[in-house]
Amino acid sequence: MTRARLRAADLESPFHGIRSRDRARPTTLVEQCLVYAPRLRPWQFFSHETALALHGVSTPEWPYVPRIHVSAHRPAREPRTSGVVGHRLQTRAPAVRSATHGLPVEDPVRAWRQCGRLWPLDDLVAAADSLVGGKAPTASVEDLRSEIREMGDVRGGILRAAADLAHPGVRSPRETRLRLLLARNGLPAPDVNADIFDERGNFVAEIDLAYPRWKVAVEYDGRVHAEDERQFARDADRWAEIRAAGWDHVRVLNHHLRGDGARAVSLARDALVRAGWRPGLAAR
């Protein structure tokens, strides 16, 4: 290609050294990584929050936008170009995996530790919950702790604190935030994804956050309206079955978590008080 062709108006330059015929600018993180990928040297890979996002692990909520991080292990060189955060990591055996569209991506446990310098505590806990949760967990809490022991903690021990707060079974960042909110405001620690049954022993439902002693079920519902009428009808029947089994069902909606989340805490506390709980009982 001649220099004149590379400067032609029909080509976009999303990154230095990259030319594309696609006039639409890449918007999603995957699109941005795919556009940048031809610039990767054989020893370079996507890392930090970019790697977690490509692995499908939760990242901080909007308006936070994960940046593109590309790393290399010493003595190899990291990239230095506009629009990309380059990192030269300690000499270490690589643990790069192939993620979305075959992109070279850092091991998710290592990437989680790398985010210790970037994210606040609750976002690190949410990512840890995402790693250790689900039907096929990516890692265990012990894997996170092992990585911290091997490579060290940062920012006054924020990673150890996040690993201690991680809990298998949590399915979304909002559930993580709700769980942490309840604990920090003096409420008992709930069971996560607990099954409840009726008096005959028949399965009724799996509850996000449950207090079996007081029969209080707390769940986060992120819908602002019923997009799927059939699903909403099934959920409404489920809520009725939970109540019929003798449980007080608390639905926490998005607006309840705004700000300091005081409204969500109040809903859960009121339900527990109605069931006989009093402050000071949490530890017993």
Rank of each mutant, 00 (worst) to 15 (best):
R3L: 12
A4E: 14
A4F: 15
D10P: 08
E12G: 14
P14C: 08
P14K: 12
H16T: 08
H16Q: 09
I18H: 10
S20T: 15
R21C: 09
T27L: 05
T28S: 15
L29N: 03
L29S: 03
Q32T: 03
Q32C: 03
C33W: 02
L34D: 03
L34A: 06
S47H: 01
H48T: 04
H48C: 01
E49F: 03
A51C: 02
A53H: 03
H55D: 02
G56M: 00
V57W: 08
E61C: 00
E61I: 01
Y64A: 10
Y64M: 08
Y64S: 09
V65P: 00
I68Y: 03
A72P: 04
A72C: 12
P75F: 13
R77L: 11
E78K: 13
P79N: 02
P79W: 07
G83V: 02
V85F: 06
G86E: 07
G86D: 06
H87T: 07
H87A: 00
H87D: 04
L89A: 09
L89P: 01
T91H: 14
V96G: 00
A99D: 04
A99T: 06
H101A: 15
L103G: 06
P104Y: 05
D107T: 07
R110S: 07
R110L: 14
A111M: 03
A111Y: 02
C115W: 06
G116T: 09
W119Y: 15
D122K: 02
L124D: 10
A128C: 09
S130C: 15
S130K: 09
L131M: 13
P137F: 06
T138L: 15
A139H: 04
A139C: 08
V141A: 14
R145S: 15
S146Q: 13
M151P: 00
G152Q: 09
V154I: 14
I158C: 11
A162K: 04
A162M: 10
A163N: 07
L165G: 11
L165P: 08
H167Q: 13
G169N: 12
S172D: 10
S172T: 14
P173R: 13
R174K: 12
E175I: 12
R177L: 14
R179L: 13
R179Q: 12
L180Y: 14
L182A: 12
A183T: 12
R184H: 12
N185F: 09
N185V: 07
A194V: 06
A194R: 14
A194L: 13
D195H: 11
I196K: 08
G201I: 05
N202V: 04
E206D: 05
D208L: 03
Y211T: 01
W214A: 01
K215S: 04
V216P: 00
V216Y: 00
A217P: 06
V218F: 00
E219C: 02
D221N: 05
G222V: 04
R223T: 10
H225S: 11
E229L: 12
D237H: 08
A240V: 08
E241V: 10
A244I: 11
G246K: 04
V252C: 09
L253E: 08
G261K: 07
D270G: 00
D270S: 08
D270C: 01
A271N: 02
L272H: 02
G276E: 07
W277G: 00
P279S: 04
P279E: 05
